[in-house]
Nucleic acid binder design. Structure first.
Lengths: 243, 243
DNA sequence: TTGTTAAACTTGTTTAAACATGTTTTATAA
DNA sequence: TTATAAAACATGTTTAAACAAGTTTAACAA
């Protein structure tokens, strides 16, 4: 339910681009034309288009027009690029997700953990280990650290379903911002065991470490996601700005 | 040389945040205050702030203010997140870069190559293999495919220096857009040889495949960058938008 | 003192207009 | 026919103003 006009336009244009209404490398209708189409102001239209630019869907060229440079990505198991829960991502790609909770516990952050999580020493935390399956295959091993005071009433049952659904629907928390770092790390015995990896085959894996902030600007989650290397893909679009 | 007002303000605020003028988790001065400071319109100021949001530097909260959530990242060998050449990245982090050209050739794209590069079959291409050193250590093995008609006069000498400098300074090309996919792949004999990797140690590596567009919306480069896993880091900031 | 309400803040959305700058097309002069 | 200049059209930047909506503070009544 997009509430704002620019968001409605953005979604409509995005959907049109994905459905080949505009050919690859072709120019979109000009600003003036689209203003007529959507009966909106120039600013509002430009705001919608600028999001398409960020998405890598189109490229604007001063004096020329707006070019469609969208090419559908090969459908893959896991696509990041937005903040998306495992369930959302699976649903979007038409796969069946399943989550198993391996460990659900709580403790206060020690010095070593403070260093890599970003939480202060002594902060009370829920620590959860979860295994994410897609179509029956274990793909991701997650280590979640949730700020206890920001996520009251979290249980293993909720973790088995969807923590993000609980955060947004029940606690009415708004997730806003997520800083991520991707690295490649050696697999551990735990990875080997749960993700059915074999060191002779793959001895390292993709690791995504993220710090997530809620709408109060409070970092309420640190997560380390350990991905099966053969099913990991991360999409990104970069825009070069003048120096 | 930032020409626009919003860019000047953006850079000033960014620099202030990086230099701790605003404390972590503190609120920035309000829009009205900053408008007075920079003597600009509200729109222009908001445009600067919105880029700081994209960068993950601040978070806006309706009714409350703008919170500084910037934390300096651990300095690392290679940071991506923008389109940046190897030399630029090295300079920014105070390292000494060196590039060796392993292979410089040209050919027409065949069917197999067309599939993964995104170039059409028969397109004339410069194919270059380059090894990037940082402080004397080989870190990245690059496979570059450049559209020949878009990059006339490319030589091995230029490739040894900086292709991007040639593109921008000599050919006056503007690089705008780069789509990237990150994966983890098994190392090959070539990787082992040039990056001094050992399969008993690491048998896979980080691979960044990218398609880059110039200001005419033409894809003029496909590159596969193969990174030493122990020196690879990719930073990203994601913003969750209402569904 | 406490609870409610209103005012004064904050950021968010939208419109309108003017001018700048780059590109293409058209009209005009040679 | 060809070269040049002007016009038309494209996106880029900036300002101004109005209203919406969320949060904090201040005033006020009980």
């Amino acid at each position: 339910m997009p509430k704002s006009i620019y968001e409605t336009i953005y979604k409509d244009l995005k959907q049109k681009i994905e459905n080949d209404v505009f050919a690859y490398q072709a120019l979109l209708p000009s600003e003036n034309t689209l203003i007529q189409t959507y009966q909106c102001s120039r600013n509002t239209l430009r705001r919608a288009v600028s999001r398409l630019v960020s998405d890598g869907y189109v490229q604007t060229m001063q004096g020329k027009g707006v070019r469609n440079i969208y090419q559908p990505a090969a459908q893959t198991a896991f696509t990041i690029g937005e903040i998306e829960s495992f369930r959302e991502s699976a649903a979007r790609n038409g796969h069946t997700p399943l989550t198993k909770v391996l460990l659900f516990t709580e403790f206060a952050v020690n010095e070593k953990q403070a260093l890599y999580t970003g939480f202060s020493v002594g902060t009370d935390i829920y620590y959860i280990q979860r295994l994410h399956y897609l179509d029956g295959m274990p793909l991701i091993l997650n280590h979640n650290y949730f700020l206890k005071e920001a996520v009251p009433g979290l249980t293993a049952e909720i973790a088995e379903d969807s923590i993000y659904r609980y955060l947004e629907d029940t606690l009415h928390m708004t997730i806003v911002n997520s800083k991520r770092i991707m690295t490649v790390e050696k697999i551990t015995e735990i990875d080997e065991k749960y993700l059915k990896l074999h060191a002779e085959d793959y001895n390292c894996m993709a690791v995504v470490s993220s710090q997530t902030y809620n709408s109060d600007g409070v970092m309420f989650e640190y997560t380390q996601s350990r991905h099966r290397p053969d099913y990991f893909r991360f999409y990104d679009n970069a825009v070069r700005r003048p120096i």
